[in-house]
Design a binder for these strands. Sequence first.
DNA 1: TATACACGAAAGTCAGGGAAAGTCAATACC
DNA 2: GGTATTGACTTTCCCTGACTTTCGTGTATA
Lengths: 150, 150
Amino acid sequence: MRMSDLITQEILRLLNNSEMNIAEIQRNELANTIGCAPSQINYVLSSRFTPEHGYIIESRRGGGGYIRIKRVVLSQSSALMHIVNSIGETIDPMTTRIVIENCLESGLVDGKTARLMAAAVSGNAMQSVPVEFRDYLRASVLKHMLLSLI
Amino acid sequence: MRMSDLITQEILRLLNNSEMNIAEIQRNELANTIGCAPSQINYVLSSRFTPEHGYIIESRRGGGGYIRIKRVVLSQSSALMHIVNSIGETIDPMTTRIVIENCLESGLVDGKTARLMAAAVSGNAMQSVPVEFRDYLRASVLKHMLLSLI
DNA sequence: TATACACGAAAGTCAGGGAAAGTCAATACC
DNA sequence: GGTATTGACTTTCCCTGACTTTCGTGTATA
């Protein structure tokens, strides 16, 4: 069995044992008990516990540091997932506006959130990057924001 | 639990017990009851109770000395304006995190909004633009989002 | 009486070390 | 060719101890 699978298994076990769908680990400790390099943990987290997979990671360095893995429970948020998946590599301002308006109308987000997202991907906000990057950037930022709502 | 967390907790407790949002401590005494080096108190104050975080510190040395921590309460819009103005042309991920956490702790934004903003300016979201633009972009996007809340 | 000075009791500063997580490029394994 | 794995290096955060600065007070002296 592969190391990455062992690590994945262990994290899932912790998540299942938790009422709150939260697993908190110490990187070096876990790496030790499993017997792998600490950085391997990062690899597993960044390849299998991404927001796209329905997980949120937060961490802290230094003494008493930790890594916290939250599993997101899919309910009506699968609608958001659907929207996220429908957004490609790039998105133009017009389509962006439509996506946000749809979210608002379908009640997935409230007015305040919609305005916030619109502000984040507005033309004004993106003037500091060259035109050729903007559609990529807009897609990426929009997707990350939508995922954060899950 | 980390010492810095204990100290933080105790100061917050004192602040919450105070009508005036003022906590007054004696450094050596607090260090003693908690069981840490006195200078550790300074560390906590300078890392978690800064003006950026919405606190003002004043102190006095010598016999009968003290440290006074004041929590500043601003109106929401002026506080947001203040934060926006304090953000320059560029902002690095670290400072960004502090700004957003600050907004959260001071109640300017709720948890959901904080997560949304963090997602919008996360490193992951910005991978599609070259490194040299990211700090400019982050500043711009963050400011636009904050302004949209007013 | 008034001034100066000494001394102790606080808080402040800073360099340094240790503990943890993050990053990345190179390599190994399907 | 893509996925795993590692190790070296970096960054962030925590904590301490030695030393410095500031303040109040008591005391000696002109």
